[in-house]
Write a protein that binds this DNA or RNA. Structure first.
Length: 487
DNA sequence: TGAAATGTTGGGGCG
DNA sequence: ACGCCCCAACATTTC
């Protein structure tokens, strides 16, 4: 039996700049690309509903892409990835297995154990850096410790970049397929899609194109247009000012190294200092993602526990089911909050500025634990990523790395007026308010019932009263948070 | 990658 | 012309 190389696909569902795949092809033996669905290995964080929808479509796209270079993706389903791999080795006689690294604490453990077990069987096992620009252990302070503050981390990355950021690997044009037929499952058999009777995915389908080509298109579009105004436009949920790359990055449909490179290329010959500045701001955002992974790698407990220990026993309110539900469903009576939460539910995504606003509202106005917010995001976001999600929530709650100070409490009305000045974002996602004028669309409780009626609004009926008074909630939060600010 | 409270300044109205 | 007061507008401090 001819020797073959297994390539595991996990969160790197792409052909371009895929080190494991390229290395396998370079080995000049048949290549067996494999995807193993083993959500049990994610422990408490198996992919949520929105992520599974994305994964289904991304796998479809990957299958086609692999076919175009002569390969057939083998899809397996097993509680244990090791058991699935061992079976496949028996059937194929493969003598080596390559993969790109993962960085979530539990998955690092899985991959470590698998590596040892497979090496013991005499296989050549190789892991590659593919999903981050900077491996988490390569960036360290002068004292050799992990960074906990973003700016010095950014500087360290920026400095390391000239050396560390290698040109992305080309998309392979041809590969040697494994000769005999290896039976696997169809994508449908993984049963990743939500019940088709409730067409929950309609909004997601309308907005997203999962897969490598979709990611590439997003990047091209962004680089030709929005990047030039990124610094200010990225804060505008009512505009198209962001890259929309987050889900593509999470599933590895696009490589962060490729993004880095293409951004540099896009401004290399420009004479516009402004464009250069804006591109740099975008790279900084890409590196926030790296920072989140850096933190998760060095502080694996942060998935459940706050990084700052003085938050360990923080007196979060016992979760009021009704209140929490009003947040989840976008019925808090605060237009910008409700718009964001409904955008999330409909499209599987929320604008980053609005994520900060709704997260501040949950943790500071409602005093509900960031863990509960993180869980909801995990299930509903197509870009749900353990590192970024954990990091973002701890940041807002004030208990994480380089976190927002306890007194930084977003005012949903002011944020709305500032970043959605004409109310278009609210009108799009909260149609009950579509006839409200710009002037008070972010604070409908501050106008008379007559004025509301003229716009077809009746508070408590067509649109909810605010579930809490922000002014009072803020005072309460300040009192509670100030208790534990020390340390 | 906040917002509110408090402090300061300076122009204009007015006696 | 002058001082006084008022109050935006802006700056600083505080939470």
């Amino acid at each position: 039996m001819s020797k073959a190389t297994i390539v595991l696909f996990r969160n790197d569902l792409r052909l371009e700049d895929n080190p494991a795949l390229c290395a396998a092809i370079a080995r000049d033996a048949p290549v067996i690309p494999v995807f193993i669905w083993s959500p049990e290995e994610d422990g408490p964080w198996p992919p949520g509903g929105a992520s599974q929808w994305w994964l289904h479509h991304s796998l479809k796209s990957l299958c086609q892409d692999l076919e175009s270079i002569g390969l057939k993706l083998i899809i397996l389903r097993h509680e244990s990835s090791l058991a699935a791999i061992e079976k496949l080795i028996e059937r194929s006689g493969a003598d080596s297995i390559f993969w790109n690294r993962r960085y979530e604490p539990l998955l690092i453990e899985v991959d470590k154990k698998n590596k040892i077990a497979l090496k013991d069987r005499g296989l050549e096992v190789k892991s590659f850096p593919g999903n981050l620009i900077f491996e988490p252990w390569t960036i360290a302070t002068a004292g050799g410790t992990a960074y906990k503050v973003y700016t010095p981390f950014w500087r360290a990355c920026r400095e390391a970049a000239e050396e560390a950021v290698k040109p992305p690997l080309k998309r392979p044009s041809q590969a040697r397929a494994f000769a005999s037929d290896l039976k696997g499952l169809s994508i449908e058999e993984l049963d990743l899609l939500p019940d088709p009777r409730i067409d929950w995915a309609a909004g997601m389908r309308a907005f997203w194109k999962p897969g490598e080509a979709g990611g590439k298109t997003r990047l091209k579009t962004f680089l030709t247009k929005a990047i030039s105004e990124y610094q200010t436009e990225r804060d505008r949920p009512d505009h198209d000012g962001v890259s929309y790359l987050s889900p593509h990055l999470h599933f590895g449909e696009i490589s962060p190294r490729l993004i880095w490179q293409e951004v540099q290329d896009a401004v290399r010959h420009t004479t516009s200092d402004k464009k250069k500045k804006n591109a740099e701001v975008f790279l900084k955002e890409v590196v926030w993602r790296e920072f989140a992974h850096h933190i998760l790698y060095h502080f694996p407990d942060t998935v459940e526990q706050p990084l700052r220990e003085n938050f360990r026993d923080f007196p979060w309110s016992p979760k009021d089911r009704e209140l929490f539900k009003s947040w989840k469903k976008g019925k808090t009576g605060y237009p910008i909050i409700d718009a964001g939460m409904r955008q999330l539910w409909t499209t599987g995504w929320m604008h980053n500025r609005v994520r900060m606003i709704v997260a501040s509202f949950l943790t500071k106005d409602l005093l509900i634990s960031w863990n509960d917010g993180a869980e909801w995001f995990w299930d509903t976001l197509v870009d749900a990523d353990l590192a970024s999600n954990t990091f973002g929530w701890q940041w807002t709650a004030g208990c994480g790395a380089d976190a927002a100070p306890f007194f930084r409490i977003f005012n949903p009305v002011l944020q709305g007026k500032k970043f959605d000045p004409s109310g278009d974002y609210v009108r799009k996602w909260v149609p009950e308010l579509k006839n409200a004028p710009d002037k008070w669309i972010h604070e409908p409780w501050n106008v008379s019932p007559e004025e509301l009626a003229a716009c077809g609004i009746e508070l408590g009926k067509t649109y909810p009263h605010p579930v809490v008074d922000h002014g009072q909630a803020r005072k309460k939060a300040l009192a509670i948070f100030s208790e534990i600010k020390q340390g």
